[in-house]
Simulated scan of single mutants.
Amino acid sequence: MSAAEILEGSAQNVLLLCDHASNAVPADIDLGIDPALLDLHIAIDIGAAAVTRALAQKLDAPAILATVSRLVIDLHREPDHIGLIPHRSDGHLIPGNESVDKPARIARFHAPYHRLLRDRIRAQRPRLILSIHSFTPCLEHGGTDRPWQVGVLYNRDTRAAHPTVQFFESRGYVTGDNEPYSGRLLNATLNRHAEGQGIPSVAIEIRNDLIRDAAGVEEWAGVLAELARHLTSDEV
């Protein structure tokens, strides 16, 4: 299994990332779970890969999509994060991860993925990095309703984030400013590859019931294409 799927594009001012694009589990890894769980948000950001692909096509921009489920290893976590290889996710036990060889799994999936991102970003030097995610309207266990249609996540660098919040709000979207969770706590990929390289970036979280079908994917890809053009224009 390759570290990621790369979509090429001629527009080099933007790079798209999708850390939770896949629910794939290699044949030699047994998570010990009901396979039906792989279709839930705990295994994959539902709709995020489809939006990323459609957006890449609209912008003619390159994109990097992860090829392994976050139940195997969460590529959007630091190597020392407690949730890197989850033992439990939204109330579901993942027994196959209880006795995992953590360094081996990092070396097999996490390290090559982030090397690939590092090398691509150094070579391309985009003006903007957009990371595409999705969130569930409500967690299965202990969650409350999440009213936002889209969330804008960021850490310290607000150059792209603040204009993005304004962009969505001006178009009438119910927008989460560092919601449904804070990019100051969970922003591993962009902290390392965008902020760490001085490149403006933002993580976009779309509520997954809005992008479960082709019409929703097309709508949101169009919205994000407009956003990307706005953020890379001289107006911002």
Rank of each mutant, 00 (worst) to 15 (best):
A3G: 00
A3W: 00
I6T: 15
L7P: 00
L7Y: 02
E8F: 07
G9R: 07
N13W: 07
N13K: 11
V14P: 00
L15K: 12
L16F: 07
H20G: 05
S22H: 04
N23W: 12
V25I: 14
D28K: 08
I29Q: 04
D30P: 04
G32L: 10
D34Q: 02
L37N: 09
L38F: 09
D39N: 15
L40G: 04
H41M: 03
A43R: 13
D45P: 07
D45M: 12
A49M: 02
T52N: 01
T52V: 03
T52K: 01
T52W: 01
R53Y: 02
K58L: 15
L59M: 12
A66D: 03
A66E: 01
V68D: 07
V68M: 06
V68L: 06
S69A: 10
R70S: 06
L71A: 04
L71G: 03
D74F: 04
H76S: 15
P79Q: 06
H81M: 13
I82K: 14
D90T: 10
D90L: 13
I94A: 05
N97Q: 12
S99F: 13
D101G: 08
K102W: 03
P103N: 05
R105D: 13
A107L: 05
H110F: 14
A111G: 02
A111R: 15
P112T: 09
L116G: 04
L117Q: 11
L117D: 09
D119C: 02
D119H: 12
R125V: 08
R127G: 14
R127T: 09
L128D: 11
S131C: 12
S131D: 15
S131Y: 03
S134K: 06
S134Q: 05
C138P: 00
R146H: 05
R146Q: 11
Q149L: 06
V150P: 01
V150K: 03
G151Q: 07
G151F: 09
V152E: 06
Y154W: 13
Y154C: 02
N155W: 00
R156F: 01
D157P: 06
T158W: 04
A161H: 09
A161I: 10
A161F: 11
H162W: 06
T164A: 11
F167W: 14
R171T: 05
R171I: 06
G172T: 00
V174F: 05
T175C: 12
D177R: 12
D177K: 05
N178S: 04
E179L: 13
E179W: 02
P180Q: 10
Y181I: 10
L185M: 08
L186Y: 12
L186V: 15
A188I: 01
T189E: 10
T189S: 15
L190Q: 14
H193V: 11
E195C: 01
Q197A: 14
Q197I: 00
G198R: 05
I199G: 03
P200F: 03
I206G: 05
R212M: 09
R212V: 08
A215N: 14
A215I: 12
G216D: 07
E218Y: 00
A221I: 00
L224M: 15
L224Y: 08
A225S: 15
A225I: 08
L227M: 14
